[in-house]
Design a protein around this nucleic acid. Structure first.
Length: 475
RNA sequence: GGCCCCUUCGUCUAGCGGUCCAGGACUCCGGGUUCUCAGUCCGGCAAUCGCGGGUUCGAAUCCCGCAGGGGUCACCA
């Protein structure tokens, strides 16, 4: 077998969302799995739809997710240029071959005439076929008219790595446009030329192309080319309804997930497992494992719904799997403002306490703010607490004062504090629900915090005692 | 409308003729973990395998119909 070469070939028409990027990921995984090459090609043949900044965004996405092309726009390679808009002469050349072979001709109709044909077909509830209107003596192609393929309608059956054996009749074959009147090729033609020229072995693309596959087969034949291996991916479905996930159904920018505190590993893992599994009960896969285990024939045939709950769960799994230094480097941009001047060691201590609690990296500020700034006592939190509301102000004052002096005598390691607190439970005869809650609130004034001994240890003796004093003052 | 594809718990899925009155994961609900929140552990709810016919001793698994969903029929990709 030849070296496997796959490509991801988006058009620069906006931001990348999970639906797009999954196709790219799978193409990447196939290439890596077989020690082949992964190519990034830009299909920028529709100048009207082009959106500025698309390329930068695309590159940023791939970089963030660690999907590294071997060749392509921004990566060099010996089959370039990798932007279709810079390959126009090549398409002309291949088009000329078809013209010379009598397999392409100029389209003499005006857009209005074409539209009339289409309306007619629609009124008669027939599919529109251009070849039913194929001109007898088309004018010589001078580039001002679209160039059409002269098709040879026939039945086809072919194999798709994902979908299996597929077949169609001649009625789906038509004279499609190869070169538009603006001089740019259509996708339909350009991708065939480019894949051949770039020696692409596997075409991995979305389900929307399955209907035009027979037309492509017809063109491969006319060009005398052997066709690559095809693999058709099912769509990712929108959260509701059965439609494919698109921008207007709330498909989010891939980078938005990262900004919202989803780690790249989790996003990659999640996207890959939408429509693919390795047949075991494993749910969490690293990129390396995906490369090793991925195979197209285990890709699902039907669409998969995008379920953010599951993504969030996976994110938590990944966050908990990182060692502290790794996690620390990932959260640099997520700390609360109050942590701006805190030193690294302090932040690491705090981070280690909340690591198990983070669902996304953006949870960090709300979970850690009180470690870095003095909280404002809010006694309504005590009064609204189911257990604490029974205590009188005097009870509270006594309990807190007793606790304060016991803590003052503790040397404030996590272990020593646990002993101090346990002793305090005995000496005061209080339940943990009362004593611990009260102390926890008086040092944090937060709705939740890590274990009390750990929280106190992280705050340190001086700060803890100061906050208890401040809380008592405010009572 | 023609053509093509798809159809297992709410969701993602395992399953390739018997080990499945269908297994795992997410969600949800109980319980444990000295307070909270999360995590974690244990347990629970949840699919008569789209429907109807076959084939077979035996079908989620094979065959045929039907229905529903999706894609496509652009000088978009």
């Amino acid at each position: 077998m030849n070296t496997v070469r796959t490509r991801y070939a988006p058009s620069p028409t906006g931001f990348q969302h999970v639906g797009n990027i999954r196709t790219g990921l799978f193409a990447y995984l196939v290439a890596r799995h077989f020690d082949g090459q992964f190519i990034l090609r830009l299909e920028d043949t529709d100048k009207k739809r082009e959106v500025e900044g698309s390329i930068d965004h695309l590159l940023q996405c791939l970089k963030t997710l660690g999907i590294q092309p071997d060749e392509g726009v921004g990566f060099g390679g010996s089959h370039g240029p990798y932007k279709q808009s810079e390959r126009l002469p090549l398409y002309k050349e291949w088009a000329q071959r078809l013209i010379d072979a009598g397999r392409a001709y100029a389209d003499p109709y005006s857009p209005q005439e074409l539209e009339a044909f289409r309306e007619q077909a629609k009124a008669e509830k027939r599919p529109f076929l251009y070849r039913n209107h194929r001109p007898q003596n088309p004018p010589k192609w001078d580039g001002s008219q679209p160039l059409r393929f002269k098709s040879d309608p026939k039945s086809y059956q072919w194999h798709d790595e994902v979908m299996g054996d597929l077949s169609t009749g001649p009625e789906v074959i038509d004279d499609i446009i190869l070169i538009k009147s603006d001089g740019y090729p259509t996708y339909n033609f350009a991708h065939i030329v480019d894949d051949a020229d770039m020696q692409v072995t596997h075409i991995i693309r979305g389900q929307e192309f399955i209907a035009s596959q027979p037309n492509y087969l017809n063109i491969y034949e006319a060009l005398g080319l052997e066709h690559p291996i095809f693999a058709t991916m099912p769509h990712i479905l929108a959260p509701t309804g059965g439609k494919k996930l698109g921008k207007r159904d709330g498909a989010k920018d891939v980078l938005d997930y990262i900004r919202e505190g989803i780690v790249p590993e989790a996003l990659l893992n999640f996207i890959a497992s939408l429509g693919w599994n390795d047949g075991t009960e494993q749910e969490i896969f690293s990129k390396e494992e995906l490369v090793q285990k991925f195979s197209l024939d285990r890709v699902q045939h039907s669409g998969a719904r995008f379920d953010e709950q599951r993504l969030l769960w996976m994110n938590g799994q990944w966050i908990r799997s990182f060692n502290l230094d790794d996690l620390y480097n990932r959260v640099v941009d997520f700390w609360p403002e109050s942590a701006a001047n805190a030193d690294e060691n302090r932040k690491k201590v705090v981070l280690s306490l909340v690591q198990d609690r983070l669902k996304t990296l953006t949870d960090l500020p709300i979970m850690t703010n009180y470690f870095f700034t003095e909280p404002t006592p809010d006694w309504s939190m005590v009064r609204n607490n189911k257990q604490l509301k029974k205590l009188s102000d005097d009870d509270i004052r006594t309990l807190l004062t007793t606790a304060r002096s016991a803590l003052e005598a503790s040397d404030f390691t996590s272990e020593a504090l646990q002993q101090t607190l346990n002793a305090l439970l005995e000496s005061t005869g209080q339940k943990p629900g009362i004593l611990f809650s009260l102390v926890r609130l008086s040092v944090s004034w937060a709705p939740f915090s890590p274990a009390l001994n750990d929280t106190l240890a992280a705050l340190g003796k001086e700060t803890s005692l100061r906050r208890i004093d401040a809380s008592l003052q405010a009572l």
